[in-house]
Design a protein around this nucleic acid. Sequence first.
DNA 1: ATGTTAACTAACCGTACGGTTAGCAAACCG
DNA 2: CGGTTTGCTAACCGTACGGTTAGTTAACAT
Lengths: 258, 258
Amino acid sequence: MFPTKEDIHGIKRRAVLQEAAASFNLKGFHGTSMNEIAASLGVTKAALYHYFPNKNALLAGCFDYAMEAAFASLERGRKQGRNGRERLILTIAGYVTELLDELNCCVVLMEEHALEPEDKAKLVQQRDKFERALRALVREGIADGSVAPCDPKLAIFVILGAMNWVPKWFKPSGPWKPEQLTRALSDIFDRAISSSPAAAMVRDVGELPLRPSSERQRSDDASRAPAIRQSIKAVRRDAEAERPARLRAVGKGRVRLR
Amino acid sequence: MFPTKEDIHGIKRRAVLQEAAASFNLKGFHGTSMNEIAASLGVTKAALYHYFPNKNALLAGCFDYAMEAAFASLERGRKQGRNGRERLILTIAGYVTELLDELNCCVVLMEEHALEPEDKAKLVQQRDKFERALRALVREGIADGSVAPCDPKLAIFVILGAMNWVPKWFKPSGPWKPEQLTRALSDIFDRAISSSPAAAMVRDVGELPLRPSSERQRSDDASRAPAIRQSIKAVRRDAEAERPARLRAVGKGRVRLR
DNA sequence: ATGTTAACTAACCGTACGGTTAGCAAACCG
DNA sequence: CGGTTTGCTAACCGTACGGTTAGTTAACAT
């Protein structure tokens, strides 16, 4: 069946959100004007108000999407991981995947000050809940021996910081594919907190094989690949499957609204 | 000798910069108005224009200060470190120290888009130079065996990301002291990239002893403390010594301009 | 005393932004 | 076909912001 009117509306709405998110990441909330967002979509400013009541709602929408992705990833991580460390790493990997793939270039959870008090309260509450869950995973990992003893609060701050920094330098058009980045990030996080002695890391992110292809395995890759790498792939697959197909159509290319 | 007029001017100028930096970190460049900065200093907006020609110069000043600190830290790290990994970690530790101690609550090197083209070009050039130097340290470390094989670009992105995230959650009034934070951060970064098998990390940042005090050593602390911890203290000391004493007077407390 | 300069304020200016309004054109629906 | 809704534009409004100006106060120098 062809997309209904509501489908079209939803797709365009998502496109607006995507464009706004990219711009907020690049120039900040206050540094982005409604005119600019509209122009990037080939439309005038007033058109945006058909999809969102005001600028703040745009920001709130970004946060909503990010938090949805966060909790979905958390659930997948909890299911697939076999110990605290795996659950944590898989959650992070899923989250990065989702934001990178879908929202084009993730949403940084800064600029919450710009939200209306109610929206802000909601966001802060959700974000804190997510962070608490992550810290709990670290503690689980310490308890079950998969994570080296450390300060869970600091460990999560470090991981989230590295993650939230990604949109500042990652360019989808660059040499690294999201898939490679997810893997390499997971590796380094894993190494930072793992209790097992000094796992190997990815040596060259751009050289990571993109698919479970039959090409020759690189010596620094799957040779001593931990089982978690299969889980990361599974998490990525699941995340993709959970997205309605029609939303995937928005994909990477710029969407013209008119 | 009592502070001369120029001293006073310099101190106030620094106070303005500090207030601006704190506000830029909290609410972003565009989210901060000159009126707000002035009000926080107990002064009217026009007064600020005695110290800086315009708002952009304020931002450029923050960046200048940060980059100065960056290169000073790099030099100290290079001198004090005995291998690539130590030089890297000491550089990072010095940088964090400097920004946390002096600029009250570091400057995030975002929002470079808001700069005038010339200022931006200068900043980008310097920042890239710094990042290249850090990556070079990673490569040195891999070569001399102190750093585990990894992608230097990614490793530095991760470390810088975690570092730049600090101002988003660190409150000088909170339970963690800058000194403790520096140590704990260094620990976790060290662990992420070190070639030696799984060093121990700080378990509770807030419990770290603040001075080389004579109080009982905690079991998770100095017992197997690597020599680098002494170097971190040395780097912190040097950084402090290099700052002119009169600037230290600005310190933490809010400075009223009038 | 007197002139000079630095530090600051109150009031103002131009503009760019978020948001609104009125209206047009095409699509949809009976 | 006619009536209604949807998606958009052009033009406009109020305001808050960056920056300027003119003038006041006080410190300092001679």
